[in-house]
Design a binder for these strands. Sequence first.
RNA 1: GGGCGCGUAACUCAGCGGUAUAGAGUGCUACCCUUACAAGGUAGAGGUCAUAGGUUCAAAUCCUAUCGCGCCCACCA
Length: 897
Amino acid sequence: MSNIIPTRYEPKEIEERIYAEWEEKKLFRADESSQKSAYSIVIPPPNVTGVLHMGHALNNTIQDILVRWKRMQGYDTLWLPGTDHAGIATQNVVERALAKEKRTRADMGRDKFLERVWQWKEEYGGTIIHQLKRLGCSCDWTRTRFTMDKGLSEAVMEVFKRLFEDRLLYKGDYIINWCPRCGTALSDEEAEHRDLSGKLYYIKYQVEGALKLEIENKDYIVVATTRPETLLGDVAVAVNPDDERYSWLEGKKVILPILKRRLDVIFDKEVDPSFGTGALKVTPAHDPVDFALAVKHDLKPINAMNNDGTINENGGEYQGLDRFEAREAIVEELKQRHQFVKMEDHDHSVGHCYRCHTVVEPRLSKQWFVRMKPLAVEGIQVVNEGKIRFHPERWTKVYLNWMENIRDWCVSRQIWWGHRIPVWYCVDCLGGKSPRDVEVDGPGVTGVFLVTGEEKTTKCPFCGGGNTAQDPDVLDTWFSSWLWPFSTMGWPRETAELTKFYPTDALVTAQEIIFFWVARMIMAGLKFREDIPFRDVYIHGTVRDSTGTKMSKSLGNVIDPLEVIQEVGADALRYSIISITSQGQDVFLSKDKFEFGRNFANKLWNASRYVMMNMEDHVPGKASAGNDLAGKWIMSAYNQAVDDVQKSLVAFRFNDAASALYEFVWHKYCDWYLELSKLSEDKVVTREILITVLDGILRLMHPFMPFITEEIWQKLPSKNGEFLMTSGWPVFDETSVDLVATNSMEALIAMITAVRNIRSFWNIEPKVSVDVVFKVENKRDAALISENSVYVEKLGRCSIKEISEKAARPGKSVSSLVNRIKVFVLLGDAIDLEKEGKRISDRIEELQNYLITLEKKLDNKDFVSRAPAEIVEKEKSKKEKFTREVRTLKENLEAIK
RNA sequence: GGGCGCGUAACUCAGCGGUAUAGAGUGCUACCCUUACAAGGUAGAGGUCAUAGGUUCAAAUCCUAUCGCGCCCACCA
């Protein structure tokens, strides 16, 4: 008993209902104890504060396609979902909420504040999960993870401990990127460099004791800087030793303007004589190059800034001013002192906080770092050996380049929301030194110890005292994300999940995240689990708006996927976005693009409706086309589609798979087979084929459009409570590929098209039937036409008057050549001889021009001897074909004269 | 300063392991509410594949250069 499919396709109702059914039947659940082969993917955990944007929609559609495809193939699939705690972003969100209540985290205290963040997480942190469900994602929600979960936190602690013990983790003074607004250090990756048009300021520094006449009548040196306010932290002036302009400064001191500090002049090859004046002010606490110089020349850095970007006590009267206000004020004072030379336009790239977009300040600070070079070695190796593959391949180079030049990773953050660094300090052992200032490199530093895992004692292991305090900082969010592929499966315990599902199979992500996440996961997997975390990395493009700008909420150019789903359905959204995304190319989106998927879903819906209407009380059996030409043809084409889709998916060519399906379903199955089926005489065979192919189409399309296919499939005859989602994936059946049937059917289609074409050209009204005559060259062609005359007559709206090898051209007719078959269409008085003459001569000219190039090609000895035989054959048969057509056209031209 | 990607029909894009008179969707034109579908059907118009060289029997496809556009990385103060 088949169910009736409603006339109208209502995606919203269907999608919500179907998803609930899947959930209820627990179809997403992966079974770690089953014997089936595993296929697993971990979700790139979205930020808990996030809402679903188009980038997520694309990313998760791709993953869902992979997972559904593999699940249908019989794999035990695990798609593990979750979110990350997004330390800075989440803290910012909650702080903003507090600000509305006129409160700050400082006056709440750490514990209360964290309580509040957890509260926020419970309330709003699930948004994106719900949205992913609405998209149709078949994740195993019972395994949803969060980077601050107990299990994952234990993994973080374990990793911290191992790195610490292996001396891959240290605390030291280095220049880091500091966000004055968030009040924390950032990693290099978290500082987004943007080109700004800034200024280059030229400033005079007096040379101590220099006589004016010494050289060029000068007693000063001019330095150039983009950040004049940093002069408050200057400790030297550096010039290149080979720069003769400055050799007179040997042994001299210069006087820092405003503060009047005495500065050394140092000579170092690092200084580029061609930049600015060739003299560099050295500010080790605020610039990485200067810091390196200071280390080399044994200079003590002077920090001139507070955490919030204001000038500190080292800045004299500028103390308390914001860095940019200080810049203005200092320039003003320099002008008054006649120490300001000039200001030039200067474009340079400036780091911005990736969370709040404030200009970051390079700043000397004591932070925790991970030594990356030792970890990168193996990460490079596995990619070079092809154990991990990037798709498209070009990203391999990007990855390797970053890995080969990797720098230490600053992992401490001066915020509260995150995994607190499990390092404790014994105030007594440190003898009054502030824990903040302690340098640590591995175990053994008196007064510094780790508290991880179960042991809860915070007594100092060195002196046994209890006057201890924990490091106030938390770890970078990525310090938990980089463990995601195994921490989510229970590591460090050897769980059944890990055994079965690790390494995972594919990682699907965006290019922006290669350094942040992909590379680090590879290193973490190899270091802690001693195995790669995944085998294939598929990098998809960035979703941009129609002007090519990256979609972002602050720009207001977002297309909200939920809105699109509301309007056209998740299936349509999925199909559209997959179709327009080719192999990692950026996607330029506009709303009208989604009509594509919507129309296709609608087409599928209606085609299915037609098929079901014809099933009546049909009991499905085994489809066999027997001698039915159309049946053999569509079965052959269907199997071709199975093959195409499979091959495309294997190659991560999702858009190719989508367009192969589109072409087959719409232009073969719907446009032709359904029309042919209406005329079929053997209803039993036809029904069988209709339903069999529809069943296959639904299976092939399920990963792309899960909802509509599931809905229709369940209404197919004999699907008693089964789910398409967990049924089988079509297998390419080579024996169904029938070239003879394909050629014959294509010839018939061409004949019908030819008749339609002529009708249209001569403005024959659709209602009027025309008479046609076929002149064939052999009995097989004659049989093909006569056996399928219904198709030709009905679809071409014509009546066949004659099929013969000797048919003569009827009077007042026009003709067309299809393969070797000549089709005459009798037009009677509709024909305009002059118009027809012109039509024919135009065509003759066109063909003759082409024939000339063809002949040239075939006359070319090199071509004939060097090109593959089949190509030459192809060209020859083309020549024959067109020569024949020209001959026919010429006869026609004669005939109408 | 390096690295990468893109310039194909009016628009948005496929095609780029060399061998179609270069494809799709949208838009456009004409006709059609033909009992699955007007979110549709039939037929059609529309392209010197950015430019210039080169390799080849053969180039949108490979190489080189140029011009546009976009992205990523980098300590030019």
